[in-house]
Write a protein that binds this DNA or RNA. Structure first.
Lengths: 113, 113
DNA sequence: TTACATACTATAGTTTCTTAGGTATTGAAA
DNA sequence: TTTCAATACCTAAGAAACTATAGTATGTAA
């Protein structure tokens, strides 16, 4: 009675992170929050309380690697995808897309009769 | 740092229920699981452990009303939208759609350079 | 009579996210 | 010069949603 696709729903934050890193190559946490806000015209806002734990989890799972650098007197922690991270990005993005298609099918239903 | 749109993410099951009831008028729990499975060609499968608590919650919130009927010796609990439920359906569906658009924007990003 | 489909309910446990803090630096405004 | 916003990271308590699992019960087909 379970479906892997649904699992993606809850994990869409991690997919967002993975996809951004795939496209941008290397980003730090704060940058991710700002980019998501900018890309979605303020529609999607990542809270730090959700983002940082998610980044740490992805790192612990071996999908991301982190390097700390000091820029303009402030420490930044740059994240990038590992090889596994890249593979996971591809499959999770595709899973999320198919979930969204299913969801769209339901949202676009017309009343019966 | 919060966004109402994100709240929708976790609540997409309830939006699915609401939308189906809006279109079909009146459904019982088991029927909902079967319809979702059929509509999405097996892609989306609702677990009973997720569905029934969600139905009860929507009923408690006043978005649904329930009537029990015995059909073929089996009790069925038919749910339908209240007036508030209908209004909520409209707004939640539109919120979910705009969330999905934002998500799609990110998923469709092309690598920089 | 066994097994599957129908039909509902309850609950322990996990994961994810929100809320709400905390630390610290830089730079602009007052 | 002090204060506030922006930058940049972190954590922890609690809420909420979902999974997994189990239980109850009837009808029907093998």
């Amino acid at each position: 009675m379970t479906n892997a696709t649904q699992h993606v729903l809850k994990g869409s934050l991690s997919v967002i992170i993975l996809k951004l890193l795939e496209d941008r190559g290397r980003m730090y946490g704060y940058e991710i929050t700002q980019q998501v806000k900018a890309i979605t015209a303020g529609e999607l806002v990542l809270t730090e309380g959700a983002l940082y734990p998610s980044l740490h989890k992805l790192e612990a799972e071996g999908l991301l690697t982190a390097e700390t650098e000091v820029v303009d007197g402030r420490a930044r922690k740059y994240y990038s995808l590992t090889k596994t991270g890249h593979q996971q990005t591809v499959s999770r993005v595709s899973e999320l897309r198919s979930f969204m298609e299913s969801l769209n099918t339901i949202l676009n239903l017309k009343p019966a009769i």
